[in-house]
């Protein structure tokens, strides 16, 4: 039982349940088949991007660029399919490859030119969307291909495809992070880059891998986004990077690096999406939604940071010894 509570997914899973409970109390339209289906479609894109965000956060960086990168890649995909005469599957593969290349660029600049990830990907946030506007005179490309939509709206054995993507990609990401040498190295570099280097880990290469994974996942998300709307647009994906980072952080990933969990991130993505869904169902304005998202991120990180203190405050209240609350954080670590 104690082990269950110390698992990294437990907190985020409980958060998801609580949020779902609250939303289902505010509106009876939440727990309908149609809405849950819609929720699955909504969560898929954010969740897949968040895989990359989580890997980059664990390695000790941050990726602000996927929203813009997705806009660029939906444009690329739509242009290839509609105007450039590229075959359907080759176009999909090339889009994913473009994602990997974008990740490679972000990662190479960060790891090898030693520009902080925040700056590199902030530049990417600006540049990739700018690049997206250079195609088709900056106009969206509609009706890209009639083969595109089934990738998003299709079903396999009655299960919506986005759900299958989620299961497959998160299983793979979890395996990568927890059961492979690369994953372990990502945790090591994020935990202590100095020590990682002195333990024989090729720190920069590991950082590069994390960014490539993030780019690749942005590519996957771009294909789904284009398929969902059967189009490409330089205006797609605005703010998605923040939602994805929020998912990772609500899932317990530490921006200091070294800590985070893929399955917990999935629950983080679910939490964010359910909140948005609940606000939509209650006809709350987008501006208010953004404020709520901001508040949730701060609360999630706060609960994580102050878990120790909160515990002791509760203990001290219970035993009516309020002075315990004043102790500094060192208390837990001292002998």
């Amino acid at each position: 039982m104690r082990r269950l509570f110390s698992l990294p997914v437990t907190g985020p899973a409980i958060a998801t349940l609580i949020v779902a409970l609250i939303v289902s109390l505010t509106t009876d339209r939440f727990l309908t088949h149609g809405n849950l289906n819609n929720l699955a479609l909504q969560v898929s894109i954010v969740a897949l991007i968040a895989i990359g965000s989580t890997a980059v956060i664990i390695v000790g960086g941050i990726d602000l660029s996927p929203g813009s990168a997705i806009a660029l890649m939906t444009m690329l995909l739509a242009m290839m399919l509609k105007f450039w005469g590229v075959g359907f599957w080759p176009a999909i593969v090339l889009t994913l490859l473009a994602g990997a290349v974008i990740g490679l660029i972000n990662g190479a600049i960060t790891a090898y030119l030693r520009i902080p990830a925040f700056i590199t990907t902030l530049a990417g946030l600006s540049a990739y969307r700018g690049l997206a506007f250079t195609f088709n005179n900056g106009s969206p490309v509609f009706e890209a291909s009639n083969r595109l939509e089934p990738l998003f709206y299709g079903k396999l054995l009655g299960v919506p495809l986005p759900l299958i993507y989620i299961v497959v990609f998160f299983a793979a990401a979890h395996w990568l992070m927890r059961h492979t040498r690369i994953g372990r190295s990502i945790y090591a570099v994020g935990g202590n880059a100095n020590a990682a280097r002195l333990s024989g880990i090729k720190v920069r290469r590991v950082q590069l891998y994390a960014f490539i994974l993030a780019g690749l996942m942005a590519g996957v998300a771009a294909v789904l986004m284009a398929a969902r709307l059967n189009s490409g647009s330089p205006n797609y994906g605005v703010g998605l990077e923040l939602t994805a980072i929020a998912a990772a952080v609500i899932g317990g990933a530490s921006l200091a690096g070294g800590r985070g969990d893929m399955i917990a991130t999935l629950f983080g993505a679910l939490t964010v999406t359910i909140v948005q869904n609940g606000l939509n169902l209650n006809a709350v304005q987008t501006s208010t939604q953004n404020i709520v998202l901001g508040a949730i991120i701060v609360i999630a990180v706060g609960i994580d940071m102050w878990r120790g203190e909160l515990g002791r405050v509760l203990v001290s209240v219970a035993s009516s010894m309020p002075r315990v609350a004043r102790e500094d954080r060192e208390g837990r670590k001292a002998q």
Partner: peptide, 27 residues
């Protein structure tokens, strides 16, 4: 320069010899 505070003791030990436990696709 030494410890990974996000790792268990066991993981801190193996980190410099991960190659020994690496079967390519899995540790």
């Amino acid at each position: 320069d030494g410890l990974f505070f996000n790792f268990t003791g066991a993981q801190n030990i193996s980190v410099a010899s991960l190659g020994d436990f690496d079967h390519g696709l899995w540790l």
